[in-house]
Amino acid sequence: MTTHKGLRITHYALLLALMLAGLLTASVSAQGPTPTDDEVNAIAKQLFCPVCENTPLDVCPTEACRQWRDLIRLKLAEGWTEDQIKQYFVDNYGARVLSEPPRTGFNWLVYIVPPVLIGIGALILFTAFRSWRRLDAELAEADAGSGKEEASNDEYVARLEEELRQRD
């Protein structure tokens, strides 16, 4: 009987403590300045909701995205930082909410593959240039004694160029 009464008292005490905590939180929140729309959008701009594909959260007109923006406002009012809020959405909805994949594990490929491929392309081009120039040097040697004049394939262009040279 005593135990039962004790439990009941504990329940009341817990309830009271929760209400007090709630009040305190509310008063703390009320003390902070209300986040502006611009502060909310600055974070929302970097997030994508899983439903509205490829539409940043700050401009998405759906009701779900409006609720997400309200949540950001709430978190900002509670004093959360930008990184904490972004992490909160990642924890709850996965990495796809971020505008770029996090630099971990498999995602590294997104960042490494393009520069490597571009580098290979540049290397191929450079090698090709070198081989062409080598061949060209041989051709130039062969042509050196012939004294051939190059002919234009377009009389008008040749004439125009001649005029331009005279002017220069």
Binding site: G94, R96, L98, E100, V110
Partner: peptide
């Protein structure tokens, strides 16, 4: 590969 969707957005 991983079952995880990612977003590759404008900053990339």
């Amino acid at each position: 590969a991983t079952g995880q969707k990612i977003t590759v957005g404008p900053p990339f």
